[in-house]
Design a protein around this nucleic acid. Structure first.
Lengths: 170, 170
DNA sequence: TATTGTTATACTCTATAACTATA
DNA sequence: TATAGTTATAGAGTATAACAATA
């Protein structure tokens, strides 16, 4: 017989597949080469975003704000009276996923919903004094985190990075 | 009492809070201002990543590869014999979430699992000829997509963007 | 004792269809 | 008829704990 001592795992018949990859079954990898993936914008943008958000989660825990909460509160903070629909468009969220979030922020006393002045279907979202106070602190913390996170970038590089990223999604 | 006629919605007692935001209940927003969020790396990186991945999903559907499948197959393609543990470290994945993915790729005949030459606990992951063929096509499609997606960037800008993103997460 | 791969499972996030009230 | 907000729900993605086999 051709085959020799085998484990319970299927071992490829090395002699019958000499073509492309010689010895595919015994090679090992000491250091993983990810250089190809590093040439792709999507891979790098995703890895960078997840790294930044990881730190953001920790820092914003004291304010009880996830990234999406922070984004929504920030837009309401800077756009009092904005509607849910406008929030969805601006932040690329889906309406059903915003409902519970808004209810939660309202229950925490961070925002209030008032009838829209001209559209009876819509509700204007307004930050409360407590919400404004929270966001002033949270946005300061976010600014501090930005500086830490981009410690390996110069101010000019950081500005360039923001501009280039916006060219991608705006 | 201080409070006056109220609707069923809690209306702020305007007379008692003349301080910061006058008339918070009747203002409307015509255009949403997201300039503050646009100063944050995390926000921009996440928005850019999601935009790129959206196009990636469509383009890779013909190969049956989600982004994570593509990443895993690409690393196996360029690192035959890599282990699951190495994949997790390189791509920041969790072992339990890789199991089903690997099984799926193996069931599709794109990879084969062979005993590791030196570590009896580990399994070396190798691309099959079919897997190599698929990834040659998929990586070409990804390269094409890169060019389209970065149409608004010069080649130098694209290179700069990759380098700056890697400074964030590497 | 530590690590690889695995199972089970829970939790979060995201997406779709359908309904109401109003424009 | 179209839109804003909502409900219910399904699906995908991500997380932790615990186990067997091996280092």
């Amino acid at each position: 017989m051709v085959t020799t001592a085998q484990t319970s795992f299927k071992r490829p018949t090395r002699r019958n597949k000499p073509a492309v990859n010689a010895l595919p079954n015994v090679s090992a990898v000491d250091q993983v080469d990810t250089r190809y993936l590093q040439t792709l914008l999507g891979y790098n943008a995703r890895r960078a975003a997840l790294t930044i958000i990881e730190g953001f989660l920790e820092r914003m825990a004291e304010f009880g704000l996830r990234p999406v909460d922070f984004s929504v509160m920030s837009v309401i903070h800077h756009n009092p009276g904005v509607t849910s629909r406008q929030l969805c468009s601006a932040l690329n969220l889906l309406p059903p996923n915003l409902v519970g979030l808004i209810q939660s922020l309202e229950a925490r006393g961070l925002i209030e919903r008032h009838p829209h002045p001209t559209d009876g279907r819509a509700m204007g979202l307004h930050p409360t004094a407590q919400g404004v106070n929270l966001m002033v602190q949270a946005e300061q913390a976010a600014a501090d985190l930005e500086i830490e996170r981009s410690a390996r970038l110069t101010a000019a590089q950081r500005k360039t990075l923001l501009e280039l990223l916006q060219k991608i999604y705006l």
